[in-house]
Design a protein around this nucleic acid. Structure first.
Lengths: 209, 209
DNA sequence: CAGTTACGCTACGACCCGTAGCGAAAGGCC
DNA sequence: GGCCTTTCGCTACGGGTCGTAGCGTAACTG
């Protein structure tokens, strides 16, 4: 193990951190103004006041660049303890919906997912920097609800994992589909209906076991 | 009203129907081999043995062409009466999942949805030729379940519409998210878990009313 | 037959891609 | 300080795609 957790080489000129930040910021700005399909590497470079070659030294292409540029936006997703499972879910769904209303994420998210269907490394990059970040919220919310006694403690850890995955796909999938495919607002009325359906389903599943 | 339901002009050389079919077929083949991002209009034209200008006379660009090429694949979605709401849902979910496993739809669906976030006419085209085609299945399944007595007859038609929309986003969203974002198989085990959750939620919602 | 529309083909300017090559700048190491 | 290494900005390039214009020909109508 060569201990290079931060820098990959101890010698030579270090990479400019300001350039990194400027490029990612420029990428988000370009996504807002141009959208995914009309965004070009040259445009991002000139916005960031950086040579085009500098971009290609750090990112293989548009796909990877946009994933990194958008990933940080998912950091603002949090799960404050609002006292009940219902309130927790409604809050995180509204947060996620607000994220999907931003033009950067709106145009970028589906595009990179589409690209990832033919690009395994890209899919892995998306999973690490975006998907897993959301999945943690499901895990946390479920554990909290169990601690409150709103959900029964799972005995089989394998089944618990599968349920977490299921809940995650249902929540994230429904919100994304509502916002981007149906193109209708994810407002409080919808969120309440959706949350009621979900919690009802969880309760019925628990009662059946 | 100038009665031109089929042809837009009664005179002149008619458009070749064979060319239409060949182009759409070539588009699907190109999607399988190249995927969305590497598919080009020129390539489709040469595959279909048609001049590139002929493509542009019928479709404004890649987006519209691919939507039309993929839309017909959604015709195979059907909802045979299997006797119970659970069986109906499981069957249609598995059908939809099989559709999403095909490389054409896999690479095209998310891509055109991503493009539609900045293109209203394209969004409308997708809605008419793909989304509404799926939504009808939800309506039909719900009516069938009500006829069986599995679901209570809705008194407020407005609330019924909202519930149909909700169910549609939940089903389609969860399946798409599982297949394309989580990139894990939509197998029978998952479908049974999902369907149980959904029907449980519907039952709880009915009990609460 | 004349009129109208679609077709195939070629050619074109515009744009973007991704890379190579250069000299200069900014660090670490002795 | 001097030397080495890596990054930086810049320019230039071949290759590819875009979308359109222009032309002559083909097909169908009245």
């Amino acid at each position: 193990m060569c201990s290079r957790t931060t820098s990959r080489s101890r010698t030579g000129r270090p990479r400019s951190l300001e350039a990194d930040a400027a490029i990612l910021e420029a990428t988000r700005a370009a996504l807002v103004e141009l959208g995914w399909s009309k965004l070009t590497m040259g445009d991002v470079a000139s916005r960031a006041k950086v040579a085009k070659t500098t971009l290609y030294r750090r990112w293989a292409g548009k796909n990877e660049l946009v994933v990194d540029a958008v990933a940080v936006l998912f950091d603002e997703l949090e799960l404050p303890d609002l006292g009940s499972l219902q309130a927790d879910i409604e809050h995180v769904v509204l947060q996620f919906a607000a994220l999907l209303e931003r033009p950067e994420t709106r145009t970028a998210l589906m595009a990179v997912v589409a690209e990832s269907t033919r690009d395994q490394p890209l899919r892995e990059r998306i999973r690490l920097s975006i998907v897993d970040r959301q999945k943690r919220l499901v895990l946390e919310g479920r554990q909290r609800a169990q601690a409150r006694g709103e959900l029964p403690a799972g005995r089989d850890p394998l089944a618990t994992d599968a349920t977490d995955d299921l809940i995650f796909d249902v929540i994230a999938g429904a919100v994304v589909h509502r916002a981007l495919v149906s193109a209708e607002p994810v407002d409080e009325a919808w969120v309440q209906r959706f949350t009621a359906l979900l919690i009802g389903g969880l309760g019925a599943a628990a009662a059946a076991s």
